[in-house]
């Protein structure tokens, strides 16, 4: 294993009953890169995320993360080693404030114990103070300065997305999994989010694995792209290489027999945009 590989999956399979959601997935993610996972609906992208973060146990195969084998370990232990994620449908703690969401994210890096909290020891107070300062810093980093006391549910959609990323970053990950961070956004918000993702990579120094639907974003952001279809990897490489790959075009557009040539060309144009 090369020293700059942060995550490696080796022939990972995941079956749900008879359905093969993932078969023999090999992924290699290079440290400090932005790696995109694309594919049509139902291709197994989110399943891949769930398996990598051990939310779902893989049926077979190996997963290595920062030199440790993580398939079969508990999700919270994966988080301890340095992996965090966001969700396709935002899963914030909707009824508490923005800052409390981030504080939950910092759980791993706080040292206060329950008995320390009961007696409100100086160490606990210092720990909480530090946590609060850090949370405020993170809020500022995701452009939510001054909104820490707003109930998460009442934040605008884009802010909720960024808050979810801030919560993930609060766990100080080395690898951040972002599941469709631009879903449901308008073009303006999307370009803001793209800048933001770059900023996260560059300033926090975290590797990013991204699920994305929109080609424009994938092409602009990714260092490397992996294409999934029916749970299988059908292509991998630089964005440009993947873009022209016939298998990819077929997966996205069908075999072409039922699609008129004009429509296919139009769709290809979108893909290339």
């Amino acid at each position: 294993m090369a020293h700059d590989t942060i995550l490696l999956t080796n022939k990972v399979c995941c079956n749900f009953g008879g359905l093969k959601a993932l078969s023999d997935l090999d992924l290699e993610i290079i440290e400090n890169s932005i790696h995109s996972l694309i594919g049509p609906n139902g291709a197994g992208k989110t399943t891949a995320f769930n398996v990598i973060s051990q939310n779902i146990k893989p049926t077979s195969g190996e997963i290595w993360f920062r030199g440790a084998r993580i398939d079969g370990v508990k999700p919270h232990q994966v988080a301890e080693i340095g992996m965090s994620r966001t969700y396709q449908n935002i899963r914030l703690f909707a009824n508490v404030t923005a800052i409390e969401n981030i504080l939950v994210g910092m759980h791993l890096h706080l040292r206060s114990t329950w008995w320390g909290s009961i007696f409100n020891t100086p160490a606990t107070r210092a720990d909480e103070k530090r946590a609060h300062d850090e949370a405020l810093r993170l809020l500022e980093f995701v452009d939510l300065k001054g909104r820490g006391d707003i109930i998460a549910r009442n934040l605008p959609y884009g802010d909720q997305r960024r808050l979810e990323i801030a919560r993930a970053l609060a766990a100080q990950p080395k690898l951040l999994l972002l599941d469709e961070p631009t879903a449901g956004m308008n073009p303006h918000e999307i370009s803001d989010m793209m800048d933001f993702i770059r900023k996260v990579r560059d300033e926090v120094g975290v590797t990013i694995l991204l699920i994305e639907h929109q080609m424009r974003i994938v092409m602009a952001l990714s260092d490397k792209v992996t294409v999934l279809d029916h749970g299988q990897k059908i292509a991998e490489g630089l964005p440009k290489e993947v873009q022209g790959n016939p298998a990819v075009i077929e997966a996205y557009l069908g075999s072409g027999k039922l699609v008129p040539k004009k429509a296919r060309d139009a769709a290809r144009a979108t893909l290339n945009a």
Binding site: N55, P75, H76, E80, H107
Partner: peptide, 8 residues
Amino acid sequence: DVAAALGI
């Protein structure tokens, strides 16, 4: 699930 993913 989210709690576990955050290391709890």
